[in-house]
């Protein structure tokens, strides 16, 4: 078991090295002649106007919030699924009740109109 985690750790360290190597080679052999026209932001030939890093639509934030709630609640379900053999029917129904609360929440935000993209 420990060996497996060592493998994952080594993989985490080594995985970025492969693409990094692929980026190193062009750095050595590719030409490098930047000029103001070449490095201009590409927006279909029209000169870029104003700030790029603008504020984003609040809708994205609300969807992210909905996602967060679901994600956290679902993570709680993973142990429930793994320990399914030890659970009595009552515990299973309790898990179902938990999911039903999720569903109720989903229907609530649905009725509230949060899920409409405006």
């Amino acid at each position: 078991m420990l060996n497996d985690w060592i493998f994952i750790g080594i993989f985490l360290l080594l995985a970025p090295i492969f693409p990094a190597l692929a980026l190193l080679i062009p750095r050595l052999i590719a030409p490098r002649k930047p000029n103001p026209l070449k490095t201009e932001t590409y927006e279909c030939g029209i000169e870029t106007y104003g700030e790029t890093w603008v504020q984003f639509k609040v809708q994205y934030y609300i969807f992210a919030l909905v996602f967060l709630i679901f994600d956290i609640e679902i993570v709680f379900l993973f142990p429930w699924a793994v320990a399914f053999d030890q659970l009595s029917m009552f515990a299973v129904l309790e898990g179902v009740l938990f999911i039903m609360i999720l569903v109720a929440g989903l229907f609530y935000i649905w009725r509230k109109g949060v899920l409409e993209w405006v």
């Binding site: 995985a15 990094a20 980026l23 080679i25 052999i29 490095t39 932001t41 790029t52």
Partner: peptide, 28 residues
């Protein structure tokens, strides 16, 4: 490999360079 690497004006250099590395590493 032999194409020029263009860094656009005003880009955040470090993040710009590291994003493709993470993209492939995550899949690996």
């Amino acid at each position: 490999l032999i194409k020029e690497d263009i860094m656009p004006n005003g880009a955040d250099k470090f993040i710009f360079n590291i994003a493709p590395i993470i993209a492939l590493a995550a899949v690996l």
